[in-house]
Design a protein around this nucleic acid. Structure first.
Lengths: 339, 339
DNA sequence: AACGCTAATCGAAACGTTTCGAACGTGTCA
DNA sequence: TGACACGTTCGAAACGTTTCGATTAGCGTT
């Protein structure tokens, strides 16, 4: 900028004024300055600007795993939304690890991000202090966080799983295996509640042996399913509360020599592009990923636009059960639903 | 930092020296400073640091679509690698649009990223100037770029497709439909060459009617497949050079009332987690995503570590044909390969 | 006792912006 | 003609660091 000012024979203040439109500058100087900018190929240094202005026009986004199709989509939507608004987004993946996440949030904060969208693992942690200091607006994504009172957009997980399990019960299933992630995540707790309540509402017992938990990876789903399938009185259906784990479920079923849905019905959380292409077409709980991403982005953009004092807003969206043919009716005519 | 210095009754220079270990500071002051830091809850301002140092410890990463499973995985690997190295990564998605991409690269450069990893759409463009100015190291990912001579890691696309098509030919296929993306991308050109050469090597004609191109989206694959299947003499196999488009292919096959692989064989580029879970299990060309991501990260980290003058390095990795059961032998016993 | 050497500490400039208040020239009005 | 307002332009401070050269104190040597 100094060079531009010199070349145009004006002060840096004038150049800055022109660039930001903060003051009127005469046509003559305008032209000289623009010429100098072109000649020199000047680009404003956003770092210096950030230092002075106290804003970076950058936000931080942390998710557990970008390879989980739900997060893939949501990250994509959020990225687009902020791109449109002229913000850059720094992406971090926590691998569901609390310490990693705290470190990454610190990293982002160090870099003075203007805001944070967090799919939090675990409760409280470093996030609590950040939200309380209120310097950086935070919106919680997908997962609520005990003791952290801030904007959030989540699914009505309890209801979504309730509906899915109820559907299985209507099909005649009585022993329904349930594979969950770790319970330090609100999402997982709520889904589990949905499972329990659906069973109770139907007067069915909640058998502890039918509930397995894993750490969100395919292999965990595989192991959990293996355990369920080797039960003395094995379930006739399995619901996986997490998408990557259901891959393990399908592989375990295959490896043990069973077929879905003939021998065992399967449903899971989160829809994905391939779900209705292959056989069996998986019955899933679809989240409105587009809406979730956009709402989260909007909440944060609204704070960034200056609306700091509004009370925390919590958006709860509805899931949708995508009924396909990976679950078959029991008891009645044992007829395959599959195509 | 000023506050810390005052509280510890030292100069800011001393605080800085302690924090960076650039000079020895006495045990006594060390203790006073550390105490003050704790009391105040001081966090170093990375923006001010960046301004002074001229480095942000942040890199930019642009890909066409994060929802393409290849890029999902590669982004994940790259993000992890830089996270380990203490770098933040800014992610941009270009939606295969040249202007969007140029804008995003400018955005990243404005923010003074230390380096860039780019899965480039189109040739040349803004990138050329950047690489020539040599201020910011750039590594090309997945796609080479005419006239841009810099580090790159790509697949041997030509060979990979050659092998896949040859495999189909060995199965007895003679008319093999080919669905490609736009030809302004080196990857697509190379794959197309592989297709042509495989046919020629087998003495088969390259029929223009069997080649369709689309814009990388599911719908494009759908339309292309519809066209291929409504050909008078329709192909017995289809190869999709792009992963998202193959979803459209499978849906078109289903909608038209055909079955894969009984009526038509399908293979495609890029493996994905679901590929061997469902029926049919798709035959794919798997890229070594882990290696690609790590190599790209390493190339850039090496430049960032100061190795600026080494000549451009181009890494070419090998794809691997994952033979499953979506392609059936022709001519011989018309027996289904599928499980 | 004077000297030089080393280790510890500090003051101040610099990075590239933004912004505030001052200064300047010109035209208008009493 | 003098006062005043207005539109333009500018100088300089500030943002929070790092770093260079200077300063000081302590200590062993001659």
């Amino acid at each position: 900028m100094l060079h531009v000012a010199e070349a145009a024979r004006v002060s840096v203040a004038t150049v800055s004024a022109l660039l930001n439109g903060t003051a009127t500058v005469s046509p003559e100087l305008t032209q000289r300055i623009e010429q100098a900018i072109r000649d020199i190929g000047y680009k404003r240094n956003a770092i210096a600007r950030s230092l002075k202005m106290g804003t970076t026009r950058t936000i931080g986004l942390t998710v557990p795993h970008i390879t989980n199709p739900f997060f893939t989509d949501v990250v994509s939507v959020i990225q687009q939304a902020f791109d449109r608004a002229g913000y850059a987004v720094m992406l971090c993946c926590t691998d569901e690890d609390l310490n990693t996440q705290d470190e990454q949030i610190r990293l982002l904060l160090d870099r003075m991000v203007d805001g944070l969208i967090v799919a939090r693992v675990g409760d409280g942690g470093i996030l609590k202090g950040i939200v309380e200091d209120a310097n950086v607006p935070v919106v919680l994504l997908d997962r609520l966080c005990e003791g952290v009172d801030t904007d959030a957009v989540v699914l009505d997980n309890q209801r979504a799983v309730f509906d899915a399990i109820t559907y299985l019960i209507h099909l005649g299933h009585r022993r329904i295996g349930y594979i969950t992630g770790t319970s330090d995540i609100s999402t997982m707790r709520d889904r589990m509640t949905g499972y329990r309540e659906a069973l109770q509402a139907a007067g069915l017992p909640v058998a502890q042996e039918l509930v397995r938990s894993g750490n969100f990876h395919e292999i965990d789903g595989y192991n959990a399913t293996m355990q369920l399938l080797s039960l003395h009185d094995r379930p006739s259906a399995i619901f996986s509360a997490n998408n990557p784990m259901v891959i393990g479920t399908m592989k375990a079923i295959r490896d043990i020599g069973l077929n879905c849905p003939e021998d065992i019905s399967v449903a899971c959380f989160d829809d994905f592009p391939w779900s209705d292409v292959f056989v069996p077409q998986l019955t899933t709980v679809a989240q409105p990923v587009q809406a979730i991403g956009e709402q989260a982005a909007n909440l944060l953009l609204d704070r960034l636009a200056g609306n700091r004092d509004a009370p925390p807003r919590k958006l709860v969206l509805k899931g949708r059960l995508m009924i396909r043919n990976s679950c078959r009716p029991l008891g009645a005519v044992a007829q395959t639903v599959s195509a």
